[in-house]
Simulated assay, not measured.
Amino acid sequence: MAIKGWFVTGTDTGVGKTQIASGLAALAGNKLGTPVGLWKPVQSGVSPGSPEADSFRLKMGSGLPLDETELVTVSLPEPLAPWMAARRSGVELDFAALVEEGRRRLAKDPFLIVEGAGGITVPITSRELMADLALQLELPLVIVARPGLGTVNHTLLTVSYARSRGLEIFGVILNGCRNTDDPSVRENSMMIEHFGGVRVIGILPWFKHPTDANDRWDDWRTQWVERMERNLDLSDWL
């Protein structure tokens, strides 16, 4: 059965999920010949329009002709896990509504890429985690991890928990490698595959994105997609 999409998660915050998700959306659109769906259910610590917002970087990085409000459903001001950020704002996130929104997008889009917040065990509400949303949407995980020291432990823990919850794992991406010739990065990849029984689908170099809304995003996107095509093995994607 063809994959309907991916749920992009990370081993930690700041590992480059947004950069990966936006690049995959641009790459998937090229491969399928039609724009794909891209969705961030919840972002925290920012507001749409800010160059620091995930919604802004998803829009600019993917090149999709969508408003930020179409890319993100809930934005919360405090830079915390969604459950706590919502509590501080005096609101309660509606998990069922997020699931319904995700399913509506899955039915509408030819391929949907969902970017979670933080890692797979980040709480959305007092009862549900990011893992629960991925399960409800029945999307395989793309796990984004750091390339350096400590990543084997973090990645294997993420893989183990995901499997314990019944989640399928499409693969792992080691992102932000500043020295692709460093043998330790390849060794980390080998250990993750050996002990995790999971595929590392690629090692991506560090590539800084623009920090404002100027036209450098078009050039950045072109170069980033080229790097992804060159370094990721997506041969069994569809």
Rank of each mutant, 00 (worst) to 15 (best):
M1R: 13
T11Q: 07
G16P: 00
K17E: 04
G33S: 11
T34I: 15
P35D: 14
G37R: 02
G37L: 04
P41M: 03
Q43V: 02
P48T: 04
G49H: 13
S50T: 06
S55A: 15
R57Y: 09
S62P: 01
D67M: 09
E68N: 11
V72H: 01
L76C: 09
P77R: 08
R88F: 12
E92Q: 12
E92P: 00
D94W: 00
F95H: 11
L98M: 15
G102C: 09
G102Q: 07
L106K: 12
F111L: 09
L112R: 03
V114E: 05
E115L: 09
E115H: 08
A117W: 06
I124A: 05
E128R: 13
D132F: 00
L137F: 07
V144R: 09
R146Y: 05
P147F: 05
T155C: 12
T158I: 05
A162W: 03
L167W: 07
E168T: 14
I169G: 04
I169R: 05
G171N: 06
V172I: 15
T180N: 01
S184P: 00
N188D: 10
M191W: 02
E193L: 02
W206K: 08
F207V: 00
K208H: 13
T211F: 07
D212E: 14
D215I: 09
D215T: 14
D219H: 08
Q223N: 14
V225Q: 07
